[in-house]
Amino acid sequence: MKDYMLSIVQPDGDPPPPEVLDPILRDLAVLNQEMRDRGVWVFGAGLHDVSTATLLRPKDGDVLITDGPFAEGKEHLGGFMIIRVEDLDAALDWGRRLSLLLGLPVEVRPCA
């Protein structure tokens, strides 16, 4: 078994209105429960808005602290899941389901 991270790529801006977001969150809870029931789920979390990020960057033997995201962009990491599955194909299957459910890109990456 190998661990994989499913990273949810979220567009910048306000979240969808409740009439759009609520059904997505309900379906996401069902998918998360299925992952738990199948023993795939390890850990996952949604993240606060990218504006709440703080970047720590080493420079000249010190650390610079900057509010905000690492880079300006139109997308950011909105959340993630760690799953434990047999192989990359199984991780891609879960990532595909998550992407279709959310209507957002999902990056699948093995954990070291």
Rank of each mutant, 00 (worst) to 15 (best):
K74M: 12
L88W: 02
A53P: 02
T54C: 05
P15M: 14
S51E: 15
H48R: 12
L25C: 08
P58F: 10
E34G: 14
D27P: 07
G79N: 03
S51H: 15
R57S: 09
R38F: 10
G44T: 03
D12N: 13
N32E: 14
R57K: 15
M1S: 12
L28R: 04
L64G: 08
T54K: 03
M81Q: 02
I82K: 01
A91G: 06
N32P: 04
G39L: 00
I8L: 10
G73L: 11
D14M: 08
G44P: 05
A71M: 14
S99M: 04
D89W: 05
G61A: 01
L98T: 00
K2W: 10
M5V: 10
P16E: 12
R96S: 12
L21Q: 11
F80R: 04
F70Q: 07
D87L: 01
D93Y: 13
D22F: 14
R97K: 12
L98E: 00
C111L: 15
L88D: 02
F43C: 14
R96E: 05
D37H: 07
I82L: 10
G73T: 11
G103V: 10
L77A: 05
D87M: 01
V20I: 15
D60N: 14
P17K: 13
E72V: 07
R26G: 12
L6E: 00
M5I: 14
P58Y: 11
G103D: 06
Q10S: 13
Y4S: 00
T66C: 09
P23Y: 09
L77H: 03
D22S: 13
R109N: 08
G95K: 00
V20E: 14
G73Y: 09
A71N: 06
P58M: 07
V20L: 10
W41S: 02
D60I: 00
E75G: 04
V9T: 12
V30R: 12
F43L: 15
R38I: 10
M81F: 12
E34C: 12
L55S: 15
R97N: 11
H76Y: 14
E72W: 01
L47D: 03
K74L: 09
V50M: 04
K2V: 13
R96T: 13
D27H: 14
V85G: 02
T52N: 06
D67V: 05
Q33P: 01
P11V: 05
D87P: 01
H48G: 09
I65M: 15
M81L: 12
E19W: 03
W94C: 02
L100C: 11
I8R: 00
L56P: 01
I65Q: 15
G44D: 02
D37C: 10
Q10H: 09
